[in-house]
Design a protein around this nucleic acid. Structure first.
Lengths: 191, 191, 191, 191
DNA sequence: AATGAATGAGGTTTCATTCAT
DNA sequence: TATGAATGAAACCTCATTCAT
């Protein structure tokens, strides 16, 4: 009966929010956004449907939160805004680490790829995606410029595309796709 | 005795089926499968909802038909079963032609990519997808074997992944993505 | 190209009508009225949906026709209006013949029983059913009156009910229900 | 933490479920299963369509629930598994009580008879029906065996059929059918 | 903060019936 | 007479969201 402190409440809130997001991420990634009902999320998380609406205003906003949270987590690992330039070794390191992260957090990436190709979902987050992606693209452009490439923008977009292709194939067929070897092949292109 | 000849009926059927499929393809590709209702397809095509069910047993089967029809169309262009082996020049030609086709038939590919990453939709067509994809993979494996590569399977999967990555990025951002240059860069890797 | 005579047309009409009714009877009896579609009847009969509407104005009217036709067929066997009175031997004979007919034309009776218990279908044919049933009831009432029974109406309704009960159980479980013995037991009650 | 106690929820659920089942029973019995829409049930019960699906997974399952619930209610009155044997007086008592129940709960029986004769509905519940019916049949068989009848099984099936016949005729024409007298006539056969 | 009963809009699907040919 | 493509009303069902408690 003792009233909880403001901080205790805050902790509960954070915990519950995380629980909901984790559950939703797994389900969205594995079953698909449209094939996952709020009810299913609630049941899987062991909470009530209503509670989800205490933390998220809608299913759509829950999805957005997941996407942005995924981006944030990613950004924490690879902050493209540190000093602005990277060396060749750093690029290799970044690529390897990225794909390591991909492997560890496959759900996020499943969701990410699934979402990116879903037209109407894409529209929802389009603007923010570009906001997030731009600094990384710029980082690459700068790198290739520094490397003396003729068309750094082209190089950057090519690398991004290739990276996503490898990621996508791994996500689609994680059991057979030779991820590590492909990554090394990719890195080898940028010696 | 029959008021229209068998052939007349056949023509009507072919025409209507095509109309429905074309309409559905555009809508599925641009709005997403789940965000396109049968009613919307019917209205767009200028027909009744019921008629769609004269031609397809369900929305799902309509989607399947679209996917397989897309595959078939693709397969008509690039039959991997011709003689079984391709030369370097043929590979280059194939890659260029494929991406030309990608550009022309963007809707199909939007659908294809969207589908591949949608877990529950993928399940629907998984088996067939592999049936279709296998000969192409084999073609590439054989090519790289002939080229004396150490790990032809790896090479084949790498190329597929890279190709899909480029395709995906083009589809996602057709206005800005430098498709032709990327394709040439890709081809340059296989000189 | 030779024009058919009026009579030939009439023959065709009769033939087709019979075909439709026979098909519908089988399907209605075995699958249920509501579970049988006009399309299914047409396909089973090897004709077109439209043709059915040349002979019957609606599915409901087709059902009515079947019911009345069943009654008529039945009435041809057992005309209750002959001389108005029957002897004990005639009653026994009638009962045995009725159940023989039941066995032979199970479909009609399946339909009949199914229909009688379907409220809204019953409403459709209620009036006619009574018209048909009344003479038979009267025949029985007269018989029991002649036999000196205290309450002939009660006797008549009892016998009808018992007869229908046996019929119903036979129809529901034709493989196990001991029809002949039950009929003999029934007849034994009216020695 | 929960705003209503578990018990409160349970009460609400029981009440609503009963409301839905009562409403559906009346409508199914009087209008027929196929002629009663979920919407009609909802409107009659003064609730939303959706709510019905909180309690029953489908219209079919609602029907099943009704049938089994009817059986259960019936079984509570006449448990055939008590001691296994009944005396003549008990048989008379049972028959009288059964038909009293029939009169009181005509809806259930209307449904029951309607269902038994509807081919595809029967299939749904066939197995369970036999499970329910078997003990009663056995009770009768045992009774007639004890009474020294030559063919107890025949006697049991005959009595069941006759009973159903009387029930059916009463249900079909409750205003005119002389139920009590018929029941007494029936009982008189088993002195 | 938390529950889950309740809603209702909207989706897919069925099918009796029409009608141009 | 005969066809079957086409319609559209109405059915079943789902599910995001609300809200009293």
């Amino acid at each position: 009966m003792s009233p909880r402190t403001e901080q205790q409440y805050e902790e509960i809130r954070e915990e519950k929010k995380k629980l909901i997001m984790d559950t939703a991420l797994q389900l969205f990634a594995n079953e698909g956004y449209h094939n996952t009902s709020i009810d299913q999320i609630a049941r899987t998380a062991g909470i009530s449907k209503g509670l989800i609406y205490n933390y998220f205003t809608s299913k759509e906003q829950l999805l957005q939160s997941l996407i942005f949270s995924g981006f944030d987590e990613f950004a924490q690992f690879f902050d493209p805004n540190r000093d602005g330039v990277i060396e060749k070794e750093e690029l290799h390191y970044l690529l390897r680490e990225m794909f390591k992260l991909l492997k560890e957090k496959m759900s996020v990436w499943k969701l990410y790829f699934g979402i990116m190709l879903q037209p109407q979902v894409m529209k929802m987050v389009e603007k923010e995606v570009y906001q997030y992606a731009l600094p990384y693209l710029k980082l690459l452009v700068d790198y290739f410029k520094k490397e003396g490439k003729e068309n750094p923008y082209l190089e950057a977009r090519f690398l991004s595309a290739v990276g996503d292709g490898i990621g996508m194939h791994y996500i689609t067929d994680p059991d057979n796709f030779p991820l590590e070897e492909c990554v090394e092949k990719l890195i080898a292109l940028y010696q």
